[in-house]
């Protein structure tokens, strides 16, 4: 590759790689191109250099194809899964799962119920009034259910009111579904207040969830199949997942997410206008992270 630079006088100087590249791309004006071509007819060095260009192009075209590393794909699909389904309105503000997972560990105040000994336990008290509004007799409370319930594991647990609406939660509708869920609670009044305290012989989740395993009509009107979740597993899963500090959830509901049973846990956000919504595998039975989805929605 000569250092000379004068395509106008190709006879006196070698052609540069730049000129040859331009020639190959058809970028030289007619005169320069003619001079370059003329030079190439009798300069073996420059002709040899020119011949390197097709070789380069071939080598570039033959570069081995790259396979996306699995961990990159996992990351990208998680980011995509955390995106709301496209809707004209676009309702939920979404935090990527990764950020949500980080937040779960770093943000103080996330957690369900903290027992006095620092053990957080969840007793799922089903409040069927979400799906059977008007049927007051079906309203359960922590103490009601506790009175009739057995506590096979004998662990004194704090209880938290949860519903099992069977609602089909969806990204696109999450905003309104969560609003509906949170607003549904005051309607069942003081009975659904959080009952805490390690001394409370709260209902076992098995009792309370078993009580409502018949098909129910969700707040959105869909019939759902009975939950096949093991409540004890659900409890262990959710407690383990959300860890301990004692912010009270705005609502907990068992419904479905993309056709799978899911626990929807709504926690207050630092911004009172917003709420953090965790959608979890209620049993942690899957091989991966039990967090299906996380979004921050408006309240």
């Amino acid at each position: 590759m000569s250092q000379h630079h004068d395509p106008v006088h190709p006879d006196s100087d070698h052609l540069t790689a730049e000129v040859l590249a331009d020639l190959g791309m058809g970028l030289l004006d007619e005169t320069s191109a003619a001079h370059a071509e003329h030079h190439l007819t009798h300069c073996a060095d420059c002709a040899a250099l020119r011949d390197q260009f097709p070789a380069l192009v071939d080598a570039l075209a033959e570069l081995p194809s790259e396979q996306m590393p699995e961990q990159v794909w996992q990351r990208l699909s998680a980011a995509l899964a955390a995106e709301p389904v496209v809707t004209p309105e676009g309702s939920a503000t979404v935090v990527p799962l990764e950020a949500a997972r980080k937040r779960r560990w770093t943000r103080p105040g996330i957690g369900l119920v903290a027992g006095a000994a620092g053990v957080a336990l969840l007793g799922a008290i089903v409040v069927p009034s979400v799906m059977n509004s008007g049927n007051d007799s079906s309203v359960g409370t922590a103490s009601d259910t506790a009175a009739s319930g057995r506590a096979p594991n004998q662990v004194p647990m704090a209880a938290y009111a949860a519903t099992q609406s069977g609602t089909k939660y969806q990204e696109a509708a999450l905003d309104s579904q969560v609003t509906q869920l949170v607003e549904a609670r005051p309607r069942v009044n003081g009975d659904t207040e959080l009952v805490t305290g390690s001394g409370t012989p709260a209902a076992t989740p098995s009792e309370s969830i078993r009580a409502t395993t018949e098909p129910t009509e969700s707040a959105t009107g869909q019939k759902v199949a009975p939950m096949a979740t093991d409540p004890a597993a659900a409890q262990a899963c959710l407690v383990g997942y959300l860890q301990a500090p004692d912010v009270q959830p705005l609502a907990i509901d068992i419904g479905t997410w993309r056709g799978e049973p899911a626990a929807i846990i709504v926690l207050p956000n630092a911004d009172p206008e917003l709420a953090d919504v965790f959608v979890l595998d209620p049993t942690c039975a899957g091989p991966g992270d039990p967090l299906f989805y996380f979004a921050t929605v408006s309240r």
Partner: peptide
């Protein structure tokens, strides 16, 4: 593209 090729050709050579 031509600039880039011009830089790569000497290397390939």
């Amino acid at each position: 593209c031509a600039r880039a090729r011009a830089k790569l050709v000497p290397l390939l050579d």
